[in-house]
Design a protein around this nucleic acid. Structure first.
Lengths: 113, 113
DNA sequence: CATATACTTAGCCACATGGCTAAGCATGAT
DNA sequence: ATCATGCTTAGCCATGTGGCTAAGTATATG
């Protein structure tokens, strides 16, 4: 399929995995090193590393390396595109339902007289 | 990983594909038959069918079959869990930033007097 | 009944994803 | 200099995903 919204696809895809979501909630408490993030998941480091790079490519986290420790931190603004899309859709969907409502009301009025 | 939130995973995964998102926006204009949905995508019917079943399993659409025509319609309430999760995260992330802010302010006050 | 329409199912293919181990590399501690 | 720590890279494996074709089923329509 054409890549109309690579950002949204990356974003939603990153959020679609429970491990990645739990890493994000863990990071909500504050920045953490890779090993600290790996602990709670019960997964091996390389596996966690790949989850982290998915999160980073989606813009959800930023990482910096200081000495041999890589520290990961949340990028709160990264959620905005997802929120915006959801809000737009909700608006569209509800507008449609409203029009449907108006239509039905109209038909009933016209049909009964 | 443990399946803590199968709903959210299904939901975000369904939303992570451009074709599926475009089907959703198309459906925002009103219910449509499978063939009508397939047209704009340029994809074959079986392919579209599978996108539709992903959307249906995520609860994003409902389909009914009348005669030989299957009609698909949006289920607006299905977006709620995603919205809720995003809102929760934003709250958590911002709370953390606020605490950090307060901490920094505190340290500066204490350190300078 | 025969034929077109609208899905549906089955199955193939290439590639992505999520897990792992093993080995490498850079840095901090002794 | 040596060793431990913390990440990184390479590569394997099973499964999932997104596309397809070909053939099947069910319902209108003539």
């Amino acid at each position: 399929m054409a890549k109309h919204d690579p950002d949204l696809s990356l974003l939603f895809h990153a959020l679609a995995d429970p491990t990645r979501r739990s890493i994000l909630t863990r990071l909500a408490e504050g920045p953490a090193a890779v090993t600290d993030l790996a602990g709670p998941t019960g997964l091996r480091l390389p596996t966690v590393m790949r989850h982290l790079s998915v999160l980073e490519e989606a813009g959800l986290i930023a990482t910096t390396k200081d000495g041999r420790v890589r520290t990961c931190a949340i990028r709160p603004e990264a959620l905005e595109p997802a929120r915006t899309w959801l809000d737009e859709q909700r608006a569209l969907w509800e507008a449609r339902l409203d029009r449907l409502d108006a239509f039905v009301t109209n038909v009933m009025k016209g049909g009964n007289q």
